[in-house]
Design a protein around this nucleic acid. Structure first.
Length: 103
DNA sequence: TAGATGACTCACA
DNA sequence: ATGTGAGCCATCT
């Protein structure tokens, strides 16, 4: 399970973000959104996976981001060309729909 | 093995 | 629009 999340993270296209719900849905159960958050929180390899590309369903950046805070997350997102406004991103433009049957 | 936890989400006032 | 309360379920203790 955990591994599937990580693989999905690495499959996120450059310059795109995904929501917890989408990851959860891709895993087979939309209600796993919370679990997804848990896994990222306990992520042992913070610099290894693009966990900063994961936002909640409103596009809000993780409030409890563990690596450098919102600033660091925002910086990484913008570095990929993702506009971060008021602590959030425009899911309509930068959101990514994961392949439903992948992973 | 059982209980607690939470980077979520939804419904309702 | 904002705040509160309740489900959800893989991990961690």
């Amino acid at each position: 399970m955990e591994e599937r999340v990580y693989r999905l993270l690495m499959a996120i296209p450059h310059g795109r973000v995904v929501t917890y719900g989408q990851i959860a849905a891709c895993l087979g159960n939309p209600r796993l959104s919370r679990v997804v958050g848990n896994i990222l929180h306990k992520n042992p390899d913070g610099d290894r996976y693009p966990c900063y590309k994961v936002v909640d369903r409103h596009g809000c950046l993780a409030a409890h981001y563990a690596f450098g805070g919102l600033e660091a997350q925002r910086a990484r997102l913008e570095r990929e060309g993702i506009a971060v406004e008021d602590g959030r991103v425009d899911l309509g433009r930068f959101g990514w729909c994961p392949p439903p049957d992948a992973f």
